[in-house]
């Protein structure tokens, strides 16, 4: 669905996106993670033909972009860096405007398209208030409704749950999963790890414009081959499993072992009490922190200078 090769964007001397090879397959729920300022939004804008690449190739829905924007974009729904709406018009009127502006926006069926998009995002009861009176969450929903107007094959969403309360986030997640199961590929760019971890099946991580990781979530969060053991008899466990214990903190042990159930049976069989045991898995947070540098909006002074 999305394929980039060597995609690069320079703004003057700043390299915003540096030689990124992205692969999103049909049916994916793809999470595009990265700290603030890592080039996520610039890449999304390049996918949509808003920003022109300095170098590299982009294919969306199997066609090169931005050359085929007129054929590709009608099948893509997008939300980039927050929703956009005419503040003095109502939400319905806004959707009708966007519907009329694009191809396939005939007067016939427009009201139905608008109503069904509003219903999908939970705004079907919205009144004639202008958008300027909407809450942040309502605007976010309206932006999502605009992206859903043409029942797209590919959804490209940048921080879609920004400004929503926990219940709203849950609703949107359920909606995206349902759309995905009905055949829509979802590309979600976010700096919220929990959001990506709960929704996505594949993940890419960018840092300072470079892609540092691209894999399925299941593979990234696979067991590490270590087992976390809690035991009141920790000292005896260490003596028994000599060499296999990687770390110890009071009654907590990290043991190099492939088989959790086997290790448990072994310890209990020798009369050692076990109060907790599970396979160690990395969290997505660890994966991302391990593969990225300092926070994107942190600016340290020159290092190695004298104290003042």
């Amino acid at each position: 669905m999305i394929r980039t090769r060597g995609l690069t964007k320079r703004f003057g001397r700043i390299v915003a996106v540096d030689s990124v090879d992205l692969d999103v397959a049909e049916g994916d729920r793809f999470g595009f993670l990265g700290p603030n300022g890592s080039g996520k939004t610039t890449l999304v804008r390049m996918l949509l033909g808003l920003v022109h690449a300095t170098a590299g190739e982009i294919e969306v829905l199997g066609k090169s972009m931005p050359r085929n924007a007129a054929k590709v974009l009608p099948q893509v729904g997008a939300m980039v860096e927050g929703p956009g709406a005419y503040p003095h018009l109502s939400g319905r009127r806004n959707l009708a405007m966007f519907d009329a502006a694009g191809p396939g926006g005939g007067r016939r069926g427009r009201a139905d398209r608008v109503e069904s998009a509003l219903a999908q995002v939970g705004l079907s009861g919205v009144d004639r208030r202008p958008v300027s009176a909407y809450s942040l969450g309502m605007r976010q929903r309206l932006g999502l409704a605009a992206a859903l107007l043409r029942a797209p094959r590919l959804l490209i969403l940048d921080e879609p749950t920004n400004g929503l309360d926990p219940k709203g986030i849950r609703e949107i997640r359920d909606l995206l999963v349902a759309l995905n199961e009905a055949g829509t590929t979802v590309f979600l760019s976010s700096h919220l790890l929990a959001e990506v971890e709960q929704l996505c099946t594949r993940v890419a991580v960018v840092d300072r414009g470079r892609m540092v990781l691209q894999d399925s979530l299941a593979a990234l969060l696979a067991p590490t081959g270590h087992v976390l053991v809690r035991s009141p008899d920790a000292a005896q466990v260490v003596a028994l499993l000599d060499g296999q214990v990687v770390a110890r903190d009071g009654d907590r042990l990290v043991v190099r072992h492939a088989d959790v159930a086997g290790l448990n049976a072994d310890l209990v069989g020798r009369g050692l009490r076990v109060s907790g045991i599970e396979a160690e898995r990395r969290t997505l947070e660890q994966v991302v922190l391990d593969s990225t540098g300092a926070s994107g909006d942190r600016i340290d002074g020159p290092t190695g200078g004298e104290d003042r």
Partner: peptide
């Protein structure tokens, strides 16, 4: 400024 330009262009309007 209202953020609507990008949504018009990705609708797409040439």
């Amino acid at each position: 400024a209202t953020g609507t330009l990008r949504y018009l262009l990705v609708r797409p309007v040439a």
